[in-house]
């Protein structure tokens, strides 16, 4: 059943304009890969740095101020969703049946759930803490889960070519 669905998705994606573009444009793939790495750096340089602050690193930086860098991370994430979806559309069979790709989606889901829990439960209370004090346990947990999840996403992404179906 799942296999049939995946094959249908594969056929559909393969014939999308973005899929055909990336398969045929001469420097399309390398340029999109570079953008994917740039987006990753934008994400880790802001969200990753924010996670370190949640873990207690550089406590003198006010949380609210550092949080204002997050839109850059979101921009990086959007770049990566777009370029990533183009990779997936160009050679869907290389991803849909790839164990590393499933791990990557799993880590992305963990990161996403962690973001929701963080903003629903942790963030508002955290803003009331004074710079210089140790972050509460909930904040440190959120920071640790986020860091590990994003390192997991990057590792699984890097392993894609070693798990070619």
């Amino acid at each position: 059943m799942l296999d049939q669905v995946l094959h249908a998705v594969e056929t559909y994606l393969r014939h999308t304009p973005q899929g055909e573009f990336l398969r045929t444009a001469k420097w399309g793939w390398p340029i999109f890969e570079s953008l994917h790495f740039l987006g990753m750096s934008m994400l880790l340089g802001t969200v990753g740095v924010f996670d370190l602050r949640l873990l207690g690193f550089a406590r003198r930086i006010p949380i609210a101020a550092l949080h204002r860098l997050i839109p850059i991370g979101i921009a990086g994430f959007v770049i990566n969703v777009v370029t990533g979806f183009c990779f997936l559309s160009a050679t869907p069979d290389q991803y849909l049946f790839n164990l590393a790709f499933r791990w990557k989606l799993t880590f992305l889901t963990v990161a996403g759930l962690n973001v929701m829990i963080f903003y629903a439960r942790v963030f508002r209370r955290l803003l009331e803490t004074q710079p210089g004090t140790a972050p509460p346990l909930s904040a440190r947990m959120a920071g640790a889960v986020s860091l590990l999840a994003w390192i997991g996403v990057m590792s699984a992404g890097r392993l894609l070519t070693f798990f070619r179906p």
């Binding site: 990753m40 340089g45 802001t46 930086i61 860098l69 390192i151």
Partner: peptide, 29 residues
């Protein structure tokens, strides 16, 4: 993997620093 994760933090920290110096989020000391 190490080279990729290292890149993300090395370049990422530089990008965060640069955008702050460029005037983004001036409240960050």
């Amino acid at each position: 993997i190490l080279h990729t994760v290292g890149l993300a933090f090395f370049v990422g920290a530089n990008v965060a620093w640069d955008v702050r110096v460029l005037g983004f989020s001036p409240a960050i000391p």
